[in-house]
Design a protein around this nucleic acid. Structure first.
Lengths: 267, 267
DNA sequence: CTATGTGAAAGACTTCACAGCA
DNA sequence: TGCTGTGAAGTCTTTCACATAG
């Protein structure tokens, strides 16, 4: 696929890198905090520190949105908050349904961050008839039978799956058939969806395993004692060397690729 | 820190790409499922489909671990399960502490996936005195005062933070001071940690915002019908194009850079 | 003849470093 | 003078495509 770097019409070239999109919420959060403290402007350096990234990256990211800063000064906090919000589509209302009101589903329903950014819990759905009517986070749980009606009635396009792994694909299919085109999946399963539907997954187990991998390495290093040049192993991997100093810092702040979260069922 | 090392004989060149490490848990999950069905071998094509990635990527990933396949045949399921488990450090016991037993913390404590892969909930910690002693998921909650003692006593190196955003950094500092070197953060805050400590974050709000961004685009595409705002939707955008066929598959499985998850406090 | 393993090419993302505007 | 905006360089990932082992 040739990145038809298309003729960028003035500012705002469409085609913001995925990596940048993933960081916009981070910047937005930092900016919101500044805004609440009535800070009028910030430099890329300060904002980057607050968001946990380096300033060059931040400036590059913002450059994809347009030239919203002032040389020699910095960025206007309020203005940036607005621009990023608009870019992320947070200036509109996004009704969301959460399917699977177990421990996790309830936690998500109670999650305050929802409302704060245009997301509105339109409904809580669970397959257990006993749950029907029971209020969670002030919202009455509805039975799965109602799923299609709710999606269509409320015009829901984003669905959150917090069911056991075994039910995830089935729920997903129904959500999609009913019109949902974006899914946040907390069940530890690979969902199959038709083209045009976005899926993001969050899997606690995966995150822990990644941490374990690095943790294991740390232990190994101690035992092997940091030699000047890696002993055994193939060759003095250049990559390895770099990793040494950057990894700790990097992993901690801007976290590497792939992200995931918790789930409800065993892996 | 030095990197090289490890007395790993034969294959196994040190320096597995981070992107590959992030996918190993995915392969492991798929392999475990096959193993339970007593499937003896799998081709890269089949396994890739089960894991939601493409076969070329999978083969490349495995090539970093060594040559564990048989040309013309495929991979031995049991053997691969073992190799990947070892690589990820899952053949050993990893005691984990969860701090902040609110809705989310309780959900995590009940998460079955923990035990299944070498992770053991060594303790549940909460700052609320009223919670002390109360069992959650069969484990009695302990007060924050006990934090240091538990970490050191159990030799915990992985900590999960599920507290409100305001307490996260403080908890993090205590965990690190007590000896924890890997942290999974569910609070919507950027944690600052010393070198050598790994942090992975999981933030529901961020995931939803990313979905909203793409959702907004889809809506725009429909309206613009590949007209005035081409670059994004209309143009054979590399990303867009790929997304069409692979994305559904891709986004679901290998998800882009930076990962996050849910939290307990508003953004 | 099949499916792995892997150089090489293509892309995506990050970092550098500095021109240029306020 | 200070800080943004951005080509260019550097690094990491993915994809291609095919030699090669079984």
């Amino acid at each position: 696929m040739a990145t038809g770097r298309s003729h960028r019409p003035a500012t705002r070239s469409r085609g913001i890198p995925e990596a940048t999109v993933a960081r916009l919420p981070l910047y937005l959060r930092a900016l919101t905090a500044l805004s609440e403290r009535s800070v009028p402007t910030v430099s890329s350096e300060e904002l980057a520190a607050a968001a946990g990234v380096n300033s060059a990256k931040l400036r590059k990211d913002f450059s994809y949105l347009g030239s919203y800063g002032t040389r020699g000064v910095g960025y206007d906090v309020e203005y940036l908050v607005y621009q990023i919000s608009r870019e992320l589509g947070l200036t509109q209302d996004w009704p969301v349904v959460i399917v699977g009101i177990g421990n996790l589903g309830a936690a998500l329903a109670n999650y305050g961050g929802f409302a704060s950014r245009g997301f509105r819990v339109a409904a809580l759905i669970d397959a257990d008839p006993a749950m029907a009517g029971k209020p969670v986070a002030g919202i009455p749980v509805q039975h799965t039978d109602q799923l299609e009606g709710i999606i269509q009635g409320e015009g829901v396009s984003i669905g959150v799956i917090a069911t056991p792994a075994g039910a995830a694909q089935q729920v997903c299919d129904r959500l999609v058939a009913a019109g949902v085109t974006s899914i946040l999946n907390f069940a530890p399963t690979v969902l199959t969806v038709p083209d045009g539907v976005d899926v993001r997954k969050v899997d606690l187990s995966i995150e822990l395993q990644i941490l374990a991998f690095h943790e294991q390495r740390k232990a190994g290093e101690v035992a092997a004692a940091g030699a000047v040049v890696p002993p055994v192993g193939s060759g003095p991997e250049p990559v390895a060397a770099r990793r040494a100093s950057a990894a700790g810092q990097d992993a901690a702040t801007d976290q590497g690729p792939d992200g995931d979260v918790p789930a409800v069922m065993p892996t």
